[in-house]
Design a protein around this nucleic acid. Sequence first.
DNA 1: CGTATAACCGGATATAATCCGGTGATACTC
DNA 2: GAGTATCACCGGATTATATCCGGTTATACG
Lengths: 167, 167
Amino acid sequence: MIVSQALVKIRTLDRIDMNILETLQREGRISNVELARRVNLSASPCIDRVKRLEQEGYIERYGALLNASRLGFGTTVFIQITLDNTTSDVFDRFKNDVLNIPHVVECHMVAGGFDYLLKLRLPNMDAYRTILAQIVDLPGVIKNHTYVVIEQVKQDEGLPLKANEQL
Amino acid sequence: MIVSQALVKIRTLDRIDMNILETLQREGRISNVELARRVNLSASPCIDRVKRLEQEGYIERYGALLNASRLGFGTTVFIQITLDNTTSDVFDRFKNDVLNIPHVVECHMVAGGFDYLLKLRLPNMDAYRTILAQIVDLPGVIKNHTYVVIEQVKQDEGLPLKANEQL
DNA sequence: CGTATAACCGGATATAATCCGGTGATACTC
DNA sequence: GAGTATCACCGGATTATATCCGGTTATACG
């Protein structure tokens, strides 16, 4: 008898589910009635599916996308960080410190040459200097390199759900 | 007489507006009644403010945040691209080509050479090999370097609206 | 001091979300 | 192959919410 399956109910997503996810990803505040119309369902089964997708964790949350430049975050920079050694002590300390700098909106630990890649959203380059000073002073940081974003060619618009079909 | 001001009505955002933006950024599908409660307003002025924030472009759109790994995008890589020259022909061609690769979810032109930084969401490393082959074959690409994300320490949760107060 | 403007409130109405009973299709059992 | 359980769906009823509107208060400005 397999017990573990009792906990997580596995359900494969059909085409309607994928359409719902794709629609909500782009238009998260659409009414359920309108969503139902788009995916060719009536309101009740549609809301049932949405609820299920939420409960099963496919949808993590909803959010508003704000205009960065208009709200004082028109400058984006990426910073590569190298730490002085690879003990988990140093890593944990750094992670914790970085999480406390709000302008750091992403932090990735990466393989291949350096250790962390940070993405920062800032009002201007003055702010960059201030924040960089904070970052290079963190314990363990021995090297850093900044890439200033000149032009946002494509910004994150969510997962390319249809893309994996073409692989 | 200044004509240009007639087109764009400038309004400074007060504390209530900022609270609305912050709340909607984290909980985009909250009801207007609940939002009003959170920012200490009744329903009607609250929805008026939201509508205005939308029309004035502070809120660009709403969206659902989906679980990447559960939907077949558990692998994230950054790819740094160098192009062979700086003519706008080459740039435009590259940008256009990159926009047509759906797994490329972000593309930034960065300072310091002829570089682009791409962020890709993929199901696995097999897919990475397939897509990388497509990218390096694009006209003008002479150098590339990949950073594979080992651990997502902090993922993008929107703009740190309160952060600029501390600068 | 008077007036214009802006933001707010609360109630009325329109719209949407949610609930619920019933139906048809599918798959599984005997 | 008949019976039964399960699932997804529909449409109507109910509850909740969004939206509209008139009236009130506060503030800025002449």
